[in-house]
Amino acid sequence: MTSAAAAAARGASAPAAGNGLIYLMGPSGSGKDSLLRVLRDRLGGNDRVLVAQRYITRPSSADEASVAITPAEFEHRAAQGGFALHWRSHGLHYGIGTELDDWLAQGCCVVVNGSREHLARAHARYPALHAVQVSVRPQVLGQRLRLRGREDEQAIVRRLQRAGEPFAVPAGCRLSVIDNSGALEDAANALLRLTHQALPHC
């Protein structure tokens, strides 16, 4: 079997049930990347709790655990079975590499920066995952979006409306909510506790 075929076969194989997988979600501006950065700092040398890198078809910032990749490279990697999870949002492609399955099989807790719209597909592949929604009060979210200066006011209003919309949670999917309206350290502590709870079940 060629290396490309092996990769495709691996990507198509049945993954672990998802014990130990924390699927983090939240609207743009909720602070997911900052939360994961603090979590990585808190973990230190703990090699049983890992934050998965995302592949994104745009330049990544210093806060992100992500790898910038061109759309052509993304499509090629997806075709070869190189992603355990991948989705499209706001005109961009996002993917999580198949190392996710290896880490779960080794008994690790893995935190993935995911998408609310992709939750159903992620849960179908990993039915034991723990979905975690990062919430922020609308007033605080609006302040954060304006401070980062990426979008005009109309775009910010659309993001605030979208952030308040309900999203579908699959039947049987475990869901927790972390409020990140206050101190980032408090939300990071809450996420760290969830990773510790996940470890005995890995």
Rank of each mutant, 00 (worst) to 15 (best):
T2F: 02
A6R: 15
A14M: 08
A16T: 15
A16H: 15
G18P: 08
L21P: 14
M25R: 03
G29D: 05
D33F: 00
S34Y: 00
S34M: 05
L35K: 03
R37H: 01
L39Y: 10
R42H: 02
L43Y: 09
L43R: 14
G45H: 03
A52P: 07
Q53N: 09
P59S: 11
S61M: 10
A62L: 12
A65K: 06
A68T: 13
F74V: 11
A79I: 10
A79G: 12
Q80G: 11
Q80L: 15
Q80Y: 04
Q80S: 12
Q80A: 14
G81S: 10
G81M: 12
A84K: 11
L85E: 13
G91Q: 04
G95L: 02
T98I: 07
T98V: 13
E99I: 02
L100G: 10
L100R: 12
W103A: 15
W103C: 14
L104N: 09
G107R: 03
C108I: 00
N113D: 15
N113Q: 09
N113C: 04
G114P: 12
S115L: 06
S115E: 08
R121L: 10
R121K: 14
R121V: 08
R125D: 13
R125M: 11
Q133L: 05
S135Y: 00
S135G: 01
V140N: 09
Q143F: 01
L145Q: 06
L147H: 11
G149P: 08
R150L: 13
E151R: 12
I156R: 08
V157W: 03
R158T: 13
R162C: 04
A163V: 11
P166R: 09
V169K: 12
I178R: 01
I178H: 02
D179E: 01
L184G: 00
E185W: 01
D186E: 02
A188F: 02
A188S: 09
N189Q: 01
H196G: 07
H196I: 03
H196Q: 14
L199V: 04
L199D: 00
